[in-house]
């Protein structure tokens, strides 16, 4: 009897070892990359990469705004979908909310078609979140009820939302926000906002019905439907949340730069997807977590500031960034194949 139980325990141990969470892989990757840059730092520049607090601050600031978007994208990818529109939603939401956040001190610079200045901060915030929410809602309704692939639906939104961003001011940038609005993006506030968003959605995904259904839909949509989950309604909710978070990121970005331009957020959707996938969220759906995405975000940050630190040309940076994204997806596909072979 004891032999049997010890054999079972052994099997369990093997299983546990083999099925360690992908977040752990990402964390090991993060540490590895950090060590590489630390060594390179000493070798090339004769100084520590992590020794500078300013550098670390800049590093985390650079990625935390895209990190806010990535938290939404994580949920979308867990359902087995994809969101290509978040970068353009950032552009549109930034332009529109900024035009309601302007200060009256410089009348010539004010986006005069509206002529509303010095509005209480709640108005531009509500409008910015509302823009993201609306775009996400349209994404969700298209995907859930017309059954077109998420790739196509959000690709359409990507193009259209960029159009909205340009049309809103006929291409002119919007600047000079009120002090209160600008405060959203100053100092370490973007990082704090990211942390709040990440913790909130980590808890929601882990401990609520919403989270359970998100994983179930990505895992086996038919099973989810047969179990009585309203799959369509849930997908609409997931895409709406992702859009709203893109709207939030837009305001942080605009407030930080004190200006909004129609070209803001270009390629952010891909960076957000990359952070998510690097963090171990499976593109096949059903697996991953906000913690993984946060680690993926840090990997992204270390790589970008690391390249700058060793004075690698920006062109090479982009080339290598593309390679890293592909490598993360290859790793995901490999994981899936191995899992399929095991079962």
């Amino acid at each position: 009897m004891s032999e049997v139980s010890s054999a079972t325990a052994e099997m369990e141990a093997i299983k546990k070892k083999r099925h360690w969470p992908p977040e752990l892989n990402a964390l090991i990757g993060l540490i590895g990359i950090a060590i590489i840059f630390e060594i390179l730092g000493w070798a090339i520049r004769d100084q520590s990469f992590f020794g500078s607090l300013t550098r670390l601050k800049i590093m985390i600031l650079q990625v935390s705004i895209i990190g806010i978007i990535a938290v939404g994208v994580t949920q979308v990818i867990i359902t087995g979908g994809i969101d290509l529109s978040s970068g353009s939603i950032v552009g549109a939401a930034a332009m529109i909310s900024m035009s309601f956040a302007q200060i009256g001190t410089y009348p010539k610079a004010v986006f005069i078609d509206l002529g509303w200045v010095d509005l209480p901060i709640i108005i531009p915030i509500a409008i910015g979140l509302g823009c993201g929410l609306l775009a996400g809602l349209i994404n969700g309704i298209l995907i859930a009820y017309t059954k077109i692939p998420p790739f196509i639906a959000t690709l359409g939104m990507m193009v259209s939302a960029r159009g909205v961003a340009k049309w809103w001011t006929k291409g002119k940038p919007v600047s000079f926000p009120t002090d209160e609005f600008a405060a959203i993006g100053q100092g370490m506030t973007p990082v704090i906002i990211f942390l709040c968003v990440a913790v909130l959605f980590y808890l929601i995904l882990r401990y609520t019905v919403y989270g359970k259904h998100t994983y179930a839909i990505g895992s086996n949509q038919d099973a989810a439907r047969m179990s009585g989950i309203n799959v369509e309604r849930h997908l609409v909710l997931v895409y709406t949340i992702a859009g709203t978070l893109a709207g939030l990121a837009a305001m942080v970005l605009a407030a930080r730069g004190l200006t909004a331009q129609s070209g803001m957020g270009v390629m952010y959707e891909l960076d957000a997807i990359a952070m998510t996938v690097i963090g171990g969220v499976s593109l096949a759906g059903g697996r991953g977590s906000v913690i993984g995405t946060a680690i993926g975000m840090l990997i992204f940050g270390v790589i970008i500031s690391g390249f700058t630190f060793i004075r690698l040309d920006a062109f090479y940076q982009e080339m290598i960034k593309g390679g890293i994204i592909v490598a993360a997806v290859v790793a995901d596909v490999y994981r899936q194949r191995r899992r399929a072979m095991e079962s």
Partner: peptide, 18 residues
């Protein structure tokens, strides 16, 4: 089988009626 592969046993038993 109408089971969600990535969820555990209690999650599957209570899926849709948590």
């Amino acid at each position: 089988l109408a089971l969600a592969d990535d969820l555990d046993v209690p999650d599957n038993l209570f899926l849709g009626r948590e």
